[in-house]
Amino acid sequence: MDNIALGQIVHSRAGRDKGRYFIVVGIIDENYVLLADGDLRKIESPKKKKIKHLVFHDKFAVDIVEKIKTNQRITNADLKKTLQSMGLL
């Protein structure tokens, strides 16, 4: 749980979304996080996923983290733009 943070870039290693990249938009508990990518998984209905099915990267979506901290609205376009700028979508 210590190495998980909001805005962190992850990719799925299990399930039908295997290999897709997401941004952590919520932390439920020590086993689950909420993920969104603005494309397959919208911010309005983030994917609840087990941590053990994810690979965590050292990259962060800094603009998304700032919006979460300041309670600004995050759009699907923001998520897609961030992942595309990193070459992950």
Rank of each mutant, 00 (worst) to 15 (best):
V62G: 08
L40I: 02
V33W: 00
G38E: 00
K47F: 10
K50R: 14
D39N: 13
L35G: 01
F56V: 01
H53Y: 14
V55E: 14
D63H: 10
L54C: 09
S45M: 12
V62D: 15
L35M: 08
K59A: 09
L35N: 02
G38C: 03
K42R: 12
K42H: 08
K50C: 13
N31D: 15
L40P: 00
I64Y: 02
E66V: 01
G38L: 00
A36S: 05
K49L: 13
F60K: 09
K48T: 10
D63G: 11
K50H: 14
V65N: 03
I51K: 11
K49N: 09
E44Q: 10
L54W: 04
I43M: 06
H53F: 11
K67Y: 05
K47Q: 12
I51R: 14
D37V: 04
E44F: 04
K50S: 14
H53C: 10
V55S: 11
K50M: 14
K67P: 02
V55L: 13
V62L: 14
A61T: 02
R41A: 05
S45A: 10
H53Q: 13
F60L: 13
F56D: 02
S45C: 09
F60D: 04
Y32I: 09
S45R: 12
K42M: 07
A61K: 00
K47I: 05
D58G: 12
F60I: 09
V62A: 13
A61M: 06
K67E: 07
I64G: 03
L34E: 13
I43L: 04
P46C: 08
E44V: 05
D63T: 04
D39S: 14
V33E: 11
A36D: 01
D37K: 01
L54H: 04
V62F: 15
N31I: 06
I64R: 00
D39I: 08
D63L: 11
S45F: 12
V55A: 12
K49I: 08
I64K: 00
D63Y: 05
P46A: 08
I51P: 03
D63E: 14
K48Y: 10
D63F: 06
Y32E: 15
K49Y: 03
